[in-house]
């Protein structure tokens, strides 16, 4: 029924997972905001490819839809918006790390190791899961948040958030071979809406007090 054998799918997904991890490392290591945006766009592209592969393998038409939406929204629309915002705001292009990028990378490695260790401890369930999709998904999600936790500017944080969401999408596709379509669409809509609200806030703060919204720290204790 499917043109691809399960083993082949596993291999492809594993390879894609490795590529995703690579893009993630690029995001972590990115010293300039543009690189981070391009990396996240590339990551989204890889995920839509993964969606397409899985759609071919399982014959599930929903996955095609999802792959398409991901491509449109996360690989093209959102990076473009971010790009525009960076241009319009005319901010410094460097990402401002909280801790040295090398330390962040080390933490990212730790996250990857733990993710694999964690899924290795699952035992029998792994049979039901496509290849290394689960540890890769966990690693992507956590590393995305790690990026948010170690960057000082609002836009890099948004990049980290999208990377994190990518991890979830990848897991949803690879592990469950697609969630119910309506849910996926709802999730994407929410993401778009959240991105919209965040962008408005960033611009608003930039226009009123000329500061980065993520750099505000008057509320404390």
């Amino acid at each position: 029924m499917s043109p691809l054998s399960p083993d082949a799918v596993h291999t492809v997904i594993d390879d894609l997972g490795a590529l995703l991890l690579f893009t993630m490392i690029l995001i972590v290591a990115a010293g300039q905001i543009y690189r981070a945006i391009y990396s996240v766009a590339a990551q989204s592209l890889l995920i839509s490819i993964a969606g397409a592969v899985l759609a071919t393998a399982t014959g599930n038409p929903d996955l095609w839809v999802i792959a398409g939406i991901t491509l449109a929204v996360k690989a093209i629309l959102l990076p473009w918006v971010l790009h525009r915002v960076v241009q319009r705001m005319n901010v410094r292009r460097e990402v401002e790390p909280v801790i040295p990028i090398a330390a962040t990378l080390a933490l990212a490695v730790a996250i990857v190791v733990v993710s694999f260790q964690l899924s290795a401890s699952l035992g029998p369930v792994r049979q039901a899961i496509t290849g290394n999709a689960l540890p890769v998904g966990i690693a992507l999600t956590l590393t995305g948040v790690l990026v948010m936790a170690t960057r000082k500017t609002a836009l890099t944080q948004m990049v980290g958030l999208f990377a994190s969401e990518n991890g979830i999408f990848f897991t949803a596709m690879a592990v469950t071979q697609g969630m119910p379509l309506i849910i996926e669409i709802g999730v994407i809509l929410d993401v778009i809406l959240a991105a919209l609200v965040m962008t408005i806030m960033v611009l608003r703060v930039r226009s009123t007090v000329d500061a980065d919204i993520a750099d505000l720290d008057r509320l404390r204790g």
């Binding site: 909280v98 996250i111 733990v114 260790q117 964690l118 401890s121 956590l142 948040v145 790690l146 948010m148 936790a149 170690t150 960057r151 000082k152 944080q157 993520a214 720290d217 008057r218 509320l219 404390r220 204790g221």
Partner: peptide, 28 residues
């Protein structure tokens, strides 16, 4: 109270750390 910086990356770090520690301690 004085230790809390009010920096958002700290907030995110705590969420991440909570998940990480919980996974390590309770999940494994």
């Amino acid at each position: 109270r004085a230790r809390s910086t009010g920096r958002i990356y700290g907030y995110i770090g705590f969420v991440l750390a909570a998940l990480f520690v919980a996974l390590l301690l309770l999940g494994v």
